[in-house]
Design a binder for these strands. Structure first.
Lengths: 295, 295
DNA sequence: TCTGTGTTCTTTGTCGATAATGTGCAGCCT
DNA sequence: AGGCTGCACATTATCGACAAAGAACACAGA
């Protein structure tokens, strides 16, 4: 079984949502940019839609025949790329399943467990190794270093260094930089979520990711920006499976974010640094606490 | 052709140097730790040596029959692992051969050019991507971001942040920490090379690597320590192919290192920071200058 | 003349197969 | 009793193959 056709299936599903009975789909190149895939894939989708009786396709005309039914969609689990599946399975194993530091990781076993070839697992592990949670012994196995308190400390130490630098750079951005507009949009989004915090507190993760990425971006340094990927993946999976006190924690964090945003807007270095430190040490604390309860 | 037997060949060559006529080689496990390979490989080596008439092997006795000749050694180019070969070829291409930023990298083409399978090239590129010089477009090619001034600036900015932190941590190390002994050994090595600088200035690279790694180690932070790999590889290959003013540059750097080491020994934070900054800004300058002439 | 389509070709992502290398166990020698 | 050897087995590194996905180009239609 070579390449999965997940790109096709995912794009097909998204294309279904574009169907409006009576109208015609746009041109192939336009669909390409709409769906973010190549023309080859777009044409496969169109062919498939013809077979399913969803459209009539003749050169430039792609007349929609009927609205898509539930059964027209591919099941969601078939639309995520192989590496995503591997990532999820693996993260679950090391964050939730009791994975002791020092444990060996076996490519073959992992591959069999997930039901994929060894190559994919191998490539995933290589990519993943930059997160510092695993390490390779050449010609031999991988060693799991574990999501320990030690790891979290090291991660957060670097994060603080980088974020302070980025925040300072952000404050120094010229007034007409588009980042300021984005910051304002993000502020509004925070306020909205906060207004309905009890039912929307889970949206905080996304806000958090967006805000911090926006700030890192201002550093103009690829190493700082790339490092945020590590933070993001760790926080993402960790909190996904550790929802204790999420409501309270997220509410508090949103308020801190708003302070942080206000501080940035003043463009005064001392104010920015203070708000940044405050938020980061609070984030550190809650990660450490949730690690304590998890262990 | 599966796995190359470079581990075997390299270990065989190293084992040849252990042969002393009239004596017997040590036990298999001992050879393992001496050569850093598994018993299987050691036993292959012993078998091969029997075939070559170098030793008589009977259970515990491995009597050496004759000294190894030049022709007993495997050619050196057969002893480096595939990924090393790929790395060298690739680095040469992007640092020496005119490689414009934005250029596409083609796995297949690279593989054919080097004469290896695509899998190896692919895995190399994935590993290499963490250095920030290339970037992947999923389902499509890699993009070369180029060893530009911009890249160098970003790299050095982070380096300075990290090294200042590490140097401070080093100065705070307890007096009986083994790092102090290593620092002293390194200082002596510097002095020795300096005494004969005209003929030994090329040894500076190794000293540089050892000193900075020793210092980063003190941070106790895997992200800081791992980041040094990026510095190391960039400096290694860059200066390997840019030897202009090497004699002068290295001599100056050794003096700075000695100052830096002295400052660390005082354990006074201000002295350490000053020496560290001085050396780093000088390193930055010389990298930037050599980039200017290269471009 | 420009944008869209038909067609063909190239490249990537994934797999299974295979030699090299590493690992574990039972018996043997000192 | 402790380390060494002999042997059988498990795992990794590398390759070639092939379907999915992307890219190039000539022609057609507005």
């Amino acid at each position: 079984m070579p390449k999965q056709n997940t790109v096709f299936k995912d794009a097909y599903n998204r294309c279904l949502r574009l169907l409006v009975v009576g109208e015609s789909l746009p041109s192939e190149p336009e669909l390409c940019s709409l769906l973010g895939v190549s023309r080859t894939t777009v044409r496969s989708i169109l062919s498939q839609m013809v077979e399913a009786g969803l459209i009539e396709w003749n050169k430039r005309s792609k007349a929609v025949q009927r609205p898509p039914a539930k059964s027209d969609y591919f099941p969601e689990h078939e639309t995520s790329s192989l590496s995503d599946v591997i990532e999820r399975t693996f993260m679950k194993r090391i964050l939730v399943g009791g994975a002791e530091p020092g444990m060996q990781i076996n490519e073959l076993e992992l591959a069999r467990e997930i039901g994929v070839g060894t190559t994919s697992v191998r490539e995933f592990l290589i990519r993943f190794s930059r997160f510092g949670l695993i390490e390779k012994r050449p010609n031999s196995h991988w060693v799991l270093k574990g999501f320990t308190r030690q790891f979290a400390e090291e991660l957060i130490d670097v994060r603080e260094m980088f974020e302070l630098k980025s925040a300072a750079a952000f404050a120094a951005l010229p007034i007409d930089d588009p980042a300021w507009a984005e910051l304002e949009a993000l502020r509004r989004a925070h306020v909205e979520v906060l207004a309905d915090i009890d039912s929307r507190y889970l949206e905080f993760s996304e806000l958090d990711d967006r805000l911090h990425r926006l700030i890192q971006q201002a550093s103009g340094n690829r190493f700082i920006i790339d490092f945020y990927d590590i933070i993001a993946i760790v926080f993402h999976y960790h909190y996904q499976w550790n929802k204790a006190n999420a409501r309270e924690r997220n509410g508090k964090a949103i308020l801190e974010h708003l302070d942080y945003i206000e501080a940035l807007k003043t463009r005064r270095p001392e104010a920015v640094e203070a708000a940044c430190r405050l938020h980061l040490s609070s984030a550190r604390l809650s990660l450490m606490q949730s690690l304590a309860t998890a262990a």
